[in-house]
């Protein structure tokens, strides 16, 4: 409880200092509008429906890209974690692609997919797939050998072994990978929309910068922050429900 209270204190302290700096004229209110002005902008954008539209566009992109990344990352992680020969082939490729920041993929994504949803899907995928893959791989490699042996001597076939042993045993490590992947994916979608889209929060920020509407720019940034925070919290909630069994053993 005290933790939550301190969190609230910190948050409102931050807002208060920001407001004070703006009100006292310490910072140029054009470059950094005060929280009240930003709040007003959020309300205006909500009322005219544009904020909701952009939020939905961004959310749709992040979910499509993330779902594909999660599916492929988990699948590849399971296969390479289990089969040493597959990992010998795939690991060097993954390790060479992984250091390329998603932003660096943007130009080629536009070349390949043009402007619209597709480059965003692709960039979210690129951002999210590696943490999911790496965590799944690590999880499968780290599974207690005697649990696998126990399943085998009890007569488990490949599908039961996968479904009832490998996947559940890996989930406590796969989940943080998914959470990190979703977070990176959310950053990537905004970055992609700054350049390669005609809707979404990134596009909205970019448009308002051109129109010199700083309050709307910051309003967009605040919305991104709040949604990212919310997604992380939801994932955490989901995680605790699914892998509650592992909490007290950590």
């Amino acid at each position: 409880m005290a933790t939550r209270l301190r969190g609230v204190v910190g948050f409102f302290g931050f807002i208060a200092i920001w407001q004070a700096l703006a009100s006292l004229g310490v910072v140029n209110s054009f470059l950094l509008p005060s929280p009240l002005v930003v709040a007003g902008a959020v309300i205006d954008l909500t009322v005219d429906g544009s904020l909701g539209r952009h939020v939905l566009a961004s959310l749709e992109r992040v979910f499509v890209g993330f779902l594909v990344a999660a599916a492929i990352g988990i699948l590849l992680g399971l296969v390479t974690g289990w089969s040493r020969s597959t990992s010998d082939v795939l690991k060097p490729i993954v390790e060479a692609l992984r250091p390329i920041p998603p932003i660096a993929w943007t130009p080629i994504a536009i070349l390949w997919f043009g402007v619209g949803n597709a480059p965003s899907y692709f960039l979210v995928f690129i951002g999210a797939v590696f943490p999911v893959f790496v965590n799944t791989f690590t999880a499968v490699r780290g599974i207690d050998r005697s649990q696998i042996n126990a399943a085998l001597c009890l007569g488990a076939g490949p599908s039961l072994l996968l479904r009832d042993v490998l996947i559940p045993a890996s989930l406590p490590i796969i989940f943080p990978g998914l959470r990190i992947g979703l977070g990176i994916g959310w950053m990537c979608v905004v970055a992609a929309e700054l350049i390669a889209a005609e809707s979404g929060l990134g596009y909205m920020i970019q448009q308002n910068r051109v129109l010199l509407q700083t309050p709307n720019v910051v309003a967009g940034m605040v919305t991104i922050g709040v949604i990212g925070f919310g997604m992380s919290a939801l994932m955490g909630l989901f995680e605790r429900r699914v892998i509650g069994w592992s909490q007290s053993t950590r």
Binding site: D144, A169, S246
Partner: peptide, 19 residues
Amino acid sequence: RPDRRRTVVFQDYALFPWM
């Protein structure tokens, strides 16, 4: 290979903690 005619009790139990 292992099969269910020979089951094993392990020192570290090897129970499935998610079950």
